[in-house]
């Protein structure tokens, strides 16, 4: 594979918390325009991977390359201006700031807030526009997730990292949010999606990786993963 084929590549990444290894040498790559998902159960290392990409955690070993830039040498606050935006696990919206202030912070690295993007975010999630003057902490879980994604879009990212957008959200809103994620991807934004909800994630994604206790044990196109016996048993439950 030549360098022009992928937008983003992780090689032999190792991450530990103290003496406990959380990621034990994973490699993956994402091509421009793809939706790629990382599946895995609790504690598999999905969020750790995401936080290491954003440099909130530092890698012990390995490299993370985005458009020719080595991310592991950067402080966390420099990552977003390269074009990577991270909607973190648990949403992490700024609860005592207003919805609009949250969105403005998403564009913190820009000298001016791009109103076109703001309007696009409001188009994707009209609920946010209705509630823009409200404190983010007063939103429902689903609305907070919309806000977290919208906030991440405000920096006009090329690569969007989504960490468990379905976590703790009413099923009907999960569906709505996933539909909007597809719309976001259709505008050319590359998406790396971490999910426990494997079926929803695979329906959305082009390809997937399966993470188990810090190692990638499976990878392939979404169709392959959906039809694999092992994946069905471990992550999709019984087929109806």
């Amino acid at each position: 594979m030549t360098s022009s084929d992928y937008l983003f590549k992780i090689s032999d990444l190792e991450v530990s918390y103290g003496s406990i290894a959380a990621i034990k040498g994973i490699s993956l790559e994402v091509k421009k325009g793809e939706i790629v998902t990382i599946l895995g159960s609790n504690g598999a290392g999905k969020t750790t991977t995401m936080r290491t990409i954003s440099q909130l955690l530092k890698a012990k070993q390995g490299s993370i390359i985005f458009k020719g830039h080595e991310l592991t040498k950067l402080p966390a606050h420099k990552v977003v201006s390269l074009g990577i935006s991270h909607s973190p696990e648990g949403r992490r919206v700024f609860n005592i700031l207003t919805v609009e202030e949250n969105l403005m912070l998403g564009a913190y690295t820009k000298s001016k807030v791009d109103l076109e993007i703001l309007n696009w975010v409001y188009d994707l999630f009209p609920r946010l526009q209705e509630r823009k003057a409200q404190l983010a902490g007063t939103l429902s879980g689903g609305e907070q997730q919309m806000l977290a994604i919208g906030r991440a879009l405000m920096s006009k990212p090329e690569l969007l990292l989504l960490d468990e957008p379905s976590l703790g959200i009413a099923p009907i809103l999960v569906k709505a949010i996933f539909t909007q994620i597809r719309k976001i991807a259709e505008t050319g934004v590359t998406v790396l999606l971490v999910e426990q909800n494997a079926r929803a994630a695979l329906k959305l994604a082009n390809r997937g990786y399966v993470l188990e206790v810090g190692k990638i044990v499976h990878s392939g196109s979404s169709e392959e993963l959906l039809s694999s016996k092992r994946i069905q048993e471990a992550y999709l439950g019984k087929q109806k």
Binding site: H77, V79, H86, R92, G106, Y108, A152, S155
Partner: peptide, 8 residues
């Protein structure tokens, strides 16, 4: 951490 993700 969320602030860092915003580029702060």
């Amino acid at each position: 951490d969320a602030a860092r993700l915003m580029g702060i």
